[in-house]
């Protein structure tokens, strides 16, 4: 067994999850591949959303995958960093907006 939880080379083996449940595995990958096809949003836009979400959920596999995917699509590092700041802003905002709850509670308790 490897000594760390994450091994970068495991990303290549993602497809193998179907080995233990072919039906659900292939349903998932069909869905996954369809999601990333051009629709109302371009593949490029979807790639940037995926990169931002990858950082939000802090999945190292997804970060690797969508950094590479972005480069392939000609997405610049400036665009990638801006997408990350969107993720950061929403994450930070999500904490701070709960400040209203804190303030409400203080005001209530102090009367």
């Amino acid at each position: 067994m490897s000594k760390t939880y994450y091994d970068p080379t495991d990303l290549r083996k993602f497809g193998k999850i179907s080995d233990w449940n072919e039906e659900l595995g292939s349903k998932f990958f069909d869905y996954y591949n369809t999601v990333f096809q051009e629709g109302a949003l371009s593949e490029r836009e979807k790639s940037l959303i995926a990169l931002a979400v990858a950082h939000t959920i802090q999945c190292p596999y997804c970060i690797d995958a969508y950094t590479g995917d972005g480069l392939q699509r000609g997405i610049t590092k400036e665009e990638m960093m801006e997408a990350l700041h969107v993720a950061g802003a929403i994450r930070g905002g999500a904490s701070l907006v709960h400040g209203v709850q804190m303030m409400n509670k203080v005001n209530k308790l102090e009367g």
Binding site: S42, R73, G74
Partner: peptide
């Protein structure tokens, strides 16, 4: 001619052409 500026493969030719 577009070729990637690093250790990655090129994406879809038609999409790249549109962006270029």
């Amino acid at each position: 001619v577009y070729n990637p500026s690093g250790a990655f493969l090129p994406a879809n030719q038609a999409a790249m052409e549109k962006d270029f």
